[in-house]
Every structure is written in C-alpha cells, then in structure tokens.
Design a protein around this nucleic acid. Structure first.
Length: 442
RNA sequence: CGGGGCAUAGCGCAGUCUGGUAGCGCAUCUGCUUUGGGAGCAGAGGGUCGCAGGUUCAAAUCCUGCUGCCCCGACCA
C-alpha cells in the first residue's frame, strides 16, 4: 500500500477523552473514530488489524472442529421469551420495534437463536457433537461504556455453541475450545491465563475467563506465576483425543488462577510469596458449560440409541476480536506508539522514503516496494512529501514491526537501514538482503 | 443508576466572572527555501460559539430547559 493512496488520518495530538494507552493510540493512529458513546467506526488501519485477528480466531476455531455460520444482529423477542431471558436480561438489551410494532432486539448474544437453529434440524444423537460459531457484531447497552473498544456498547464477538448428548461429551467440547483459545491468544503474541470465573447471566456452572495481564485491565486477578511460562499446545494437537485434551486442560487448571469474584485469599496465600501474582487483567475470552439451561425450555432434544428424546448439553464460548485490538495494544506499546506483534500487524514492513522526489531514493524505494509485493509481504510505502522526522513518528505510531529507512546517506554506499520497531535496533544492509531477510519467515 | 466535569475551526485550548459582533497553537491550502527524529518564512481559507427558549439596544458571555460526551463508583465479551 502506498501511503499517498491510503486513508490514514493520524492525529498529532491526543483527543482529550482518551484515558488509556490503547484508546489514545487507536485514535491517534487513525484506526477508529467514535460515533457515539461506546460505538466506533473502524477506519482502514483498524479494520486490517481487526480482520487479521478474526483470521486467527477463525483458523483456530476451524482447527478444533467448530463450523462457521452467520446469524443476524437483529432477533425476534419471542425467541427470548421462550428461554425466559427477555425479561431477565434487563436494560443491557437494546429493544426495538419494527414497523408492524413487533418486538425485536439487537442481539447481545446468540444462545437462543443457535438453539432454535439446532432444534429445527437435529433430531438424532448420531448428528452430534456439533459446534457452531459465528463472528458477528453484538450490542449491549452498557451503563457506562469506556476505554474505547475495550468496553464499547457495540462490539465484535466470536461466539461458539456446542451441542452434546451428555455431560461427558460436553466436557470434551469445552476442552476443545479451551485448547483452541490457548492457541488463539498465543498466536497473537498474548499470554492469556485461564481463570476460574463467575458464569454471569449466561448461566451454567463450569466457566473460565481467559485473562491477559495489563495494568489497565478492569478485573482484579490472582494467579500462580508459573502460568506465565507454560507452553501452549502446538498446531498438531489432536482435538479428538479425549484423554490427551483433558490432560492439557488439567495442566492449565492445576495451579491457582482466579478473578476477584472467585478469589479465595486463604488458598492464594499458601503459595510461596515469589509465586503469587496479584495483578489487573483484561478478559479476552470466556467459556461456559451450562448443560440444558436453554435446550430444556426451548426443547432442543435428540433421540438417543434407545429412542428416548433428551435435551442436549450445551456450552458457549466467546472471544471479543474488537476488544482484542485494544488488549494487544495495552500489552505492546511504548511512548512513541503501538508495537504490533507480527501476526496481527497491519503491515509487516514500512518503507520510509526519507527524500521524496530524489531520483536515487525514489528508485530504491520503488524497487523495494515491488520486491516485497511480489513476495506477498504486507508492505506500506511512505511516499508522502514530508520530512524524515514526521515519517519516523508516523511509522513508530502505527507500530509496523519493520521499518526500512531509505535516504541519501545510506544509498551513498548502496545501503538502506532496517529498524526493528520492538527494540529500536538498526542495521545497515543492501536492499536485496533486506528483502531476503524480511521475506524469510512470513 | 448515584457523584463530578465538559461542550468555542479537523485536533488541543483561551475568551464567559465583569454582555459590545470571536482568538491562539497545531493541522489544511498557495508560493519559496528546506530534507536522517513531528522544518522556516510569507500569504490564504475555515466557526449559525451543542440545541431551544428568555432577558437586553446588543448574548459565546446572564437566566431557564434540553441534548451529547467524559471521568469516579456499582455492573459487564
């Protein structure tokens, strides 16, 4: 992408409403724009990142055997009357009427609808287990939205729903998501720790929140330090290996880890002092097993081998991709701006033409730009007619992992400078070597 | 939902107390000079002062009502 043809409205000054780093940086880097309290438009740079996050989420959901569909944002109220949640959900649910005065709502979650879809088609135990997910915008009319997309009212959520014949099956489905989540967050460069959690209005009795540690997090959390060094299952993990998967989950739940709601100080304090981590955290995922809470009232039943119909055992599993954009920034930034982990970086490489209009630098930049493009590397070419200082500031702000500085100084000896955003290290090299180096492991 | 605050140009702000026809920095546009960490000079454009009433010869400024947004707390992917 040529910066001169991109839409990147960066701000030099911080809008006054932004208190925390991710909110500030997302506004300054031209990633999003607030349209109302807790409601944001994603601008091109923000959307690229959001899509990369969704890609990773999708890949890991698919790897675990979950199947993607897409449900609507607007739902009929009658579905929610069946489950009893139309009255129970309260003011967080945005209720609307259509032109025929029918009660509708903007979905805060999709248990009812997925159960309706399931019961419409699935009749036999032979057709399950089944895990269906979608990535769709949700609306929860939060009392007090804040911190940008960290706690917005409209937010993107990946929500998966599992259906099993019995509790043991549901447990395995739960474990699949547990392991998929470990992999998902690790691929984004995050250390997410599963913590025992309250089940909230979703219901059920087995639940973990996936929390990343960050000083600006909204939850108080307590955990064993060793979790920070646990190895995440690799891509070859066998999701059909019931015992193997249970082993992974057992390991990841063997040590103390709880949010403040479930915190037991007496247990926590028995850990040796150097293993006690008491911190703030950001919830980036939440998984639940809730049995027949919805299948029973909504009559989602399957016939067993004996012909008897029984309600299915369900679980639901959420990840907030829009919140993850902010969470990743909270976990990875410095004074100058964002530092994107490679996997979600909007561009891997930024070429900075330090003397736009100069034949030598223009030529070298164009050649580099073409070389990266033909190799399929996401590259941003800063071809604006601006001074070097502002180009450095922009590149640092938007957090591209690798910056290639092309100026007369280096070109005099046929070299360009490669700067690594994460640690600021720089190295002079030939353009060809830079292309080789940065194309090596995509 | 309780408590506090803010609303003036794209962004950050001054002007409001003490009423007199709106200003600063950055950004934008034009020209020239610059070019390795947010350039300099000269010029230009851009605002029904959140909305609606009221007081007054005159309202960004005073009064009343409304709306939006932010922060702290209680609740939440």
């Amino acid at each position: 992408m040529r910066l001169s043809r991109f839409f990147l409205p960066i701000l030099r000054e911080t809008p006054k409403e932004a208190e925390i780093a991710s909110h500030r940086l997302m506004l300054r880097a031209g990633m999003m724009r607030q349209e109302a309290a807790g409601i944001y438009a994603f601008l091109p740079l923000g959307l690229i990142v959001l899509n990369k996050i969704c890609d990773i989420v999708r890949q890991e959901q698919n790897r675990s055997g979950a199947i993607e569909l897409l449900m609507p944002t607007i739902q009929p109220a009658d579905l929610w009357r069946e489950s009893g949640r139309y009255d129970a959900y309260g003011k967080e649910m945005l209720r609307i009427k259509d032109r025929h005065e029918r009660d509708m709502l903007y979905g805060p979650t999709n248990e009812e609808m997925i159960t309706e879809i399931f019961r419409a088609y699935v009749r036999s135990y032979k057709d399950i287990p089944l895990n269906l997910y979608h990535i769709q915008w949700k609306f929860r009319d939060e009392v007090r939205p804040r911190f940008g997309v960290m706690r917005g009212r409209e937010f993107l959520m990946k929500d998966a729903y599992s259906f099993d014949v019995d509790q043991a099956g549901a447990r395995h489905s739960y474990n699949k998501m547990f392991v998929a989540y470990l992999r998902t967050f690790a691929r984004m460069g995050l250390k997410a720790i599963p913590m025992v959690a309250e089940t909230g209005p979703i219901g059920g009795n087995l639940s973990h929140e996936f929390i990343i540690l960050a000083s600006t997090g909204e939850s108080e959390v307590y955990c064993h330090k060793d979790y920070l060094d646990f190895a995440v299952p690799d891509a070859n993990v066998d999701f059909d290996d019931i015992a193997g998967l249970q082993g992974i989950v057992d390991k990841w739940t063997s040590l103390y880890a709880a949010t403040s709601e479930k915190h037991e100080a007496s247990t926590f304090e028995k850990l040796s002092a150097d293993k006690q981590v008491s911190a703030r955290g950001i919830e980036v995922g939440h998984i639940f097993y809730f049995g027949t809470k919805y299948s029973e009232p909504m009559k989602a039943v399957v016939a067993g081998p004996d012909g008897a119909e029984k309600p299915v055992h369900m679980g639901s599993y959420g990840i907030g991709p829009s919140r993850l954009v902010a969470a990743i920034i909270e976990a990875s930034h410095d004074e100058a701006g964002i530092i994107w982990p490679d996997a979600v970086a909007p561009f891997k490489v930024a070429i900075l033409n330090l003397k736009q209009g100069d034949g030598a630098t223009d030529g070298a930049c164009e050649k580099l730009y073409e070389a990266f493009r033909t190799r399929g590397i996401d590259v941003l070419y800063d071809d604006l007619d601006q001074r070097p200082g502002s180009k450095f500031a922009t590149a640092d702000l938007i957090g591209v992992p690798w910056q290639i500085l092309v100026g007369p100084k280096g070109l005099a000896s046929g070299q360009i400078e490669v700067k690594k955003r994460s640690d600021g290290s720089r190295e002079m090299m030939n353009p060809e070597d830079a292309v080789m180096r940065l194309s090596a492991n995509p």
